[in-house]
Computed example of a mutant assay.
Amino acid sequence: MKIYLIICHFLFLSVVSCKDKQQVQSENIDFPAAYVVNGGSNTISVIDLNEKKVKKMIQLTDLGRFPHHIELSPDGKKLSVALPEFDFTQNHDLLHQATDKKGGIVVLDAQNGKQLYKVALNWVNFNAAFSPDNKELWSASTSHSGEMFVFDAETGAQKEVIFLGADPTEVVFSQNGNYAFVALNESSFILAVNTKLKKAEKFIKVDPFPTNVWAVSDGKIYVENKNLKTVNIVDPETLNVDELLDLDFKPGQIAYNKTLNELWICQAGENKVAYFERKANKWVLKASIETGNDAHAIKFSKDEKTAYVANQMGHTVSVINTASHQKTMDIPVGLNPNGIVLKE
């Protein structure tokens, strides 16, 4: 009789446990959230911004390995994640040898994390960006004859292929949506693509071997160059470089805080974010803020009072008070977080 009761109790706990897990998996994300994509564990950690802790994990293992960078659609309803078969924590130069690796994109419902559709690419890709009008999804294949793929954002149907140049990386848009920009890593140029005509319009001269581009909320396009430790700033109206930053660190993702009029730059491979102030019409380094190991991606809250920094090798997200420029806490997430977006 005692053994029978023990077995019944065990079965009851198992049923309750399974039920709880199902409830967690189906729970809607009805709270202000940060979505953090983890390349090492093939997951998205969903952080409750009120409680400052992970409330939900979205599993991507069945969809692909090494998910890379994450975007939120302009209407806040969809998430896009690149699905390269390449581990970007390795040296990016190894991409030249990874000729057998494929790419891909998965689009998820931002409300519950469920898959809406998935598309495959023949080559590794860095990200998949929604157009500002919410109608299209753009992603570049990183090969010596790189191509830009344009998909219908609602269905995933391919609409266009645009030829680019050697080794394109991240895709970003100007605020008005007239141009998509991409760095051509094996050159001294970034490329401005006319989004209406779906064709390359101008090769913009920058420092040699640009590693990425970032569309920053001040309206400019920032060109990250880890090789020379510089940043070129491009005016999307004139399609010309109008400023250059010489750094003593390798730049990573870049963000602008309008309230403080500060430019924040992740110090790639380090546990710091540098912030700059505007002096004599130039960005001047003011100081650095301690983060976790390998500050990789950064986003400001809507009120710009808090910064969230994904630390790729620290497996955490640092929470920073922007007024005091002090870290308040680290939130553990999955392995190798490489991208973060906020939905408030």
Rank of each mutant, 00 (worst) to 15 (best):
19 K>S: 14
74 P>F: 13
323 A>Y: 13
81 V>E: 07
130 F>D: 06
167 D>A: 00
213 V>K: 09
120 A>Q: 12
241 V>N: 07
54 V>P: 00
105 I>W: 05
246 D>Y: 14
92 H>W: 13
9 H>C: 13
310 A>Q: 07
297 A>E: 13
340 I>Y: 05
177 G>N: 12
79 L>R: 03
181 F>R: 05
64 G>W: 08
215 A>Q: 08
171 V>C: 04
264 W>M: 11
169 T>V: 14
253 Q>A: 05
127 N>T: 11
12 F>Y: 06
156 G>F: 01
209 F>L: 11
98 A>S: 11
47 I>D: 07
10 F>A: 15
38 N>S: 10
196 K>G: 12
124 V>G: 00
42 N>T: 00
60 L>P: 00
211 T>R: 00
266 C>Q: 04
211 T>S: 08
96 H>Q: 13
272 K>E: 05
154 E>M: 12
232 N>H: 03
63 L>F: 15
216 V>L: 05
234 V>E: 03
216 V>C: 01
164 L>T: 08
218 D>I: 07
187 S>F: 09
208 P>Q: 08
30 D>Y: 08
39 G>K: 04
247 L>Q: 12
43 T>H: 08
251 P>D: 06
167 D>P: 00
326 Q>K: 15
72 L>A: 10
291 T>Q: 06
158 Q>Y: 00
286 K>Q: 15
196 K>L: 02
259 T>K: 15
155 T>S: 15
248 D>I: 10
